[in-house]
Amino acid sequence: MNKTWFITGTSAGLGRLLTERLLARGDRVAATVRRPEALDDLVATYGDRLWVAKLDVTDVAAVRSVTDRAFADLGHIDVIVSNAGYGLLGAVEEASDEQIRHVIETNLVGSISLIRAAIPHLREQGGGRVLQLSSEGGQIAYPGFSLYHAAKWGIEGFVESMSKELAPFGIALTLVEPGPTATHFVSGVVRPATMAVYDGTPADDVRRGIDSGAFPVTGDAGKVVKRMIDMIDGGATPLRLALGASAFDGIHAALRQRLTALEAQKAIACSVELDR
């Protein structure tokens, strides 16, 4: 049975590829993008099965307005995909106040705003799915990506809590956590001006590794999108979906390390209970 999807950030990368795959198989897509002309070729091919709206997810009022209009125009929407976002690479001291605000407003506040705007519609129609694009960086952290991680770790906590709030209404949320994937993500990463004091430090090592190609990008974007679609088609509702060997291995190792560290602190943790 064909579905209707609402997807943000569809001009390139996973958002664009997901839109193309869904339209090609007969689904309807409400696609938002900052430059609507980026989808002119798809509009020419698929006509009214592609609904396009201009949207900058940092504009909270516009997020609500566009979401309301999409539901009004299309009726039932099965899947919301919160995909819009970008990376910021640099030591935290190098980033400007404006850059910090923008990455948080886009990757965290924008995603929260979209999900909040969709909730009343999904509840009234009797349920639906929300896919929040996170990253392996929502559970592990690399030097130089602290602000990106702040947004991704933040949205992970938000979605985990929201999933419990919305379960009674038949609304299921999934955090999609790809590892490094061959898209335009790296070329779109914002880079603050570097400070010489960080030369040779871990943040600089990551930056140089990306520039030299030593930081491996092994994920296949087409396969990532296929797994997302397969999950929806199969009715699975995992809270988290790690995609890529890097994501699985990195998250697995991080969770084991955190559990080991926590277990080592058990006596200390339990020593601060009230005497009874």
Rank of each mutant, 00 (worst) to 15 (best):
F185T: 06
I104W: 06
M228F: 10
S82C: 10
I7R: 04
G222E: 02
V63I: 13
D40E: 11
V63G: 10
T8F: 09
G126Y: 15
D249P: 01
P168M: 11
I115V: 15
R123D: 03
V60K: 09
D41L: 05
H102S: 15
L175R: 02
T19S: 11
K226L: 14
S163C: 10
H252C: 08
P192Y: 12
D205Q: 12
P120E: 14
S212W: 00
L262T: 14
R227V: 00
A61S: 14
V103E: 02
R25T: 15
D220H: 02
G154R: 02
A221F: 09
R25Q: 14
R227M: 11
L18R: 07
V92L: 10
H76Q: 13
V60H: 12
Q257H: 14
L241W: 06
A24Y: 11
K3W: 13
L133C: 09
I140E: 01
R21N: 13
G26I: 11
E136H: 00
Y86T: 03
Y86E: 02
V159Q: 01
V60M: 11
K226M: 12
E160V: 09
K3G: 05
E94N: 02
V190F: 03
T201I: 02
I229H: 08
T106L: 01
E136R: 02
D27F: 12
G13H: 07
N2E: 10
V79N: 07
D230G: 10
S111P: 06
D56T: 08
R69H: 14
A53L: 04
G219I: 04
V190K: 02
T8D: 05
A95F: 05
V63P: 10
E177M: 05
M1R: 09
A247W: 01
A261Q: 06
R123Y: 09
L22P: 14
T8G: 04
A84W: 00
I171S: 02
L239D: 10
G137Y: 01
D97K: 06
V272P: 00
E105N: 03
L239E: 04
S271M: 01
L55F: 15
A44W: 08
V79E: 09
F71H: 11
R101M: 07
E20N: 06
R64Y: 00
R21I: 07
